[in-house]
Nucleic acid binder design. Sequence first.
RNA 1: GCCCCUGUGGCGGAAUUGGUAGACGCGCUCGACUCAAAAUCGAGUUCCGCAAGGAGUGCCCGUUCGACUCGGGCCAGGGGCACCA
Length: 857
Amino acid sequence: MAARFNPLEADAHWQKVWEERGTFHADDRSARPKTYVLEMFPYPSGRIHMGHVRNYTMGDVLARYRRMNGFEVLHPMGWDAFGMPAENAAMEKKVHPGSWTRDNIATMRGQLKRLGFALDWSRELATCEPDYYGHEQALFLDLNEAGLVYRKESEVNWDPIDMTVLANEQVVDGKGWRSGAPVERRKLSQWFLKITDFADELLDGLDGLDKWPDKVRLMQENWIGKSQGLRFRFSLASPLPPREGSGVGAAEGGPDGFDVFTTRPDTIFGASFAAISPDHPIALALAERDEALAAFIAECKAGGTTAAELETAEKKGFDTGLKVVHPFDPDWTLPVWVANFILMDYGSGAVFGCPAHDQRDLDFARKYGLPVTRVVAPTPEEAGEPIGDEAYVGPGRMVNSRFLDGMSAEEGIKAVVARAEEEGWGEGTTVWRLRDWGVSRQRYWGTPIPIVHCAECGPVPVPRSQLPVVLPEDVAFDTPGNPLDRHPTWTDVPCPGCGGPGRRETDTLDTFVDSSWYFIRFASQPVDEPFDRKTAESWLPVDQYIGGVEHAILHLLYARFWTRALKRIGRLDIDEPFAGLFTQGMVTHETYRGPDGAWLSPDEVEQKGSDWLVAATGEKAEPGRVEKMSKSKRNTVDPEPIVDQYGADAVRWFMLSDSPPERDLPWSEAGIEGSWRFVQRLWRLADSEGGPASTLLGGEPDPALERKLHRTIASVGANIEALAFNKAVANVYELANAIEKAAPSETRSRAVEALLRLVAPMVPHLAEQAWSALGREGLIADADWPKADPAMLVDDEVVIAVQVNGKLRDTLTAPKGSAKELLEEMALASEKVARILEGNAPRKVIVVPDRLVNIVA
RNA sequence: GCCCCUGUGGCGGAAUUGGUAGACGCGCUCGACUCAAAAUCGAGUUCCGCAAGGAGUGCCCGUUCGACUCGGGCCAGGGGCACCA
């Protein structure tokens, strides 16, 4: 064997062998049990970053481990290839988004291949190619036919410079993130998917996802935001006031009331006002003839929408002079205010204010001098207690509430809902925070929405025979806006309905649609349809999905919706797309700032004593926090040169070591050096067995090493299964240490071979190289995972802790399963114990068999 | 504001159901090898203390023979949602 492991040669060699043999091709018709391991596919931004390396290494270890355990593993890779960065690059660098994207894919594919991932590259897909998005268009039409798609006017963030719609995340302090222009609210006709139809099942389905992190389930639950309560109608005590100057009353047929929603109908007798949103139709109608109100509404809209501004925003209101009638008392009227804290797009855009039991309402009431009446009291004594600065939101019994008095709050809720439904002025309802999914994007680089607009027929679906609707290639980005809008040879087509002049829909689909079904296409990719149902169902759901927590809500919720929608329309009988989910932490690195406050890259600084200096100038530098690698903080580390220097295995090993995978991993030079050393150490260990000449014959058995080996086999497997890679790595180190210390023996030879199998999923190139150097048949990738002998997992002797008053004083060794009496006797015989007891008899002795003896003095 | 997570050596972190805290790695110290260095190998490394011993898992209480682990109350850091009625 060579003295050193040479990753530059070995990596390329084994990657070629795996590829030529098709080692990691997933066979749809395999008789082995199937498993599907998937990492979130990357956006082809240009180059692979450390986050990708970490993500794909984790999935790879699991995929290779399952393969060695007899599974047919589907582990595919593709590209989430549509999106804005390609268009931005087109504008800045004068390249076509398509060629920019495809170049990036080529670069990144090459980088991924150098890491030796066990991927089935024959299933590679890119969402920007017609053979993917054409099928997506077909699925869109399926959903449309099923009534799950609709078109509606909706407000969007419009950037007047870039002439495009911005996502909320792209609006920074009310300005476009790129142009810096103040963002306008515009109404546009947009396409929506009816995700709200699935709100209940998406919520209920979370309960079954027991292999998801609780955190993600909770985030989705909050996002879906189910609120149960009462929706009821307030009647206006008098019609809308006369139109100014006209002397005429409210237009006939005008509103005679409005709906409100509450989760606390029990507090109805604590109502002291009604409040409507500044966007409420009644507010808008009143504003037409009331300049003061119009000014107030304008003021509300001017306020910032950032979290910090909302936090400090004052509760502001405007008394309309209108009154509504209390539903339980025709003689009781409440004033109607327009209030800045009422949202038009939640519930009905109107509420009743119960200041005693809602903090917002209380702040509002105190400011405008409205009455505050307690209607819930935690104890009878507190029934008469006035409300101070804090609303009472806890449980209690109803007071000052007529027929509700004495009930619990829960009983009160039921009673009011029952009465409202009986009398016909309200009903128990569920209100969701979840909104329908607006999928229209006024952009070029996305899946064209397969619709043609016709003056006669309205929006008409493109016939399936004409799919895919392919993006035109000849587009220019020298003018802002969507180039599809000014591309007549593409847009102007006959209406599929009547044959008259039609115009293609120029909106493209949100890229989250692309990622809502790619895992299905990976499982089955026929040419003529999106997927073959039987084949897809044979792989799905994804057994283990791994990715960043930043997708905890949107992507994962959309994919869950899409899967359920396909089920509802009878295309795929899968409820949940991802049975297991794991969200990995970020790769972080130290940060530094120079004397001018500018970020410095870590190799621009050097340490001198306890100070950090700018290497070039000798000025003082300030170390910052260890943060997520980002270009702006200048603390990124490009994986490729690292792979050049240390090889794929050292990088992979580092990604798995030390930090628990769900937590952040701090990158360090010392860490990668350590991984490199360990890879070489594994090689020397294999080498110590003498290469192909090693016979595995003769020598004495080594029972201690044997036990260590079997323990390690069991725990490495369990830890990989649990994705606790850092622990699996620690187990491997322990075994390696034990083997190194062991004298040559038959056991030691077998231990080395087993060790290679154990590390094969993590450092596959080294494992193959050593396997072959030891003259073993075939590939270690095809080898079986070693079996742990259960008999070897138990010791025949155990070390027993001897405590006095719970403090460790001594240890003793006893045969496993020794009687309590024997252990107690042995413990009391301890000199150290005797010294502490000073001849006094112990008050009590607790013996935990095979564990400890605790003497209470 | 509401909800959630995390606090263990110089650092990353281990620790079945409450049962020997600090596995494993990094770093550091000393030693071997070397003309020297790197690599490698050996020993050590929670803190205080020469030692005996004592203290110790963010802080304070509590439950227990025994608490990193369970309960109550704080503090700090991170994340999610957010005038959600």
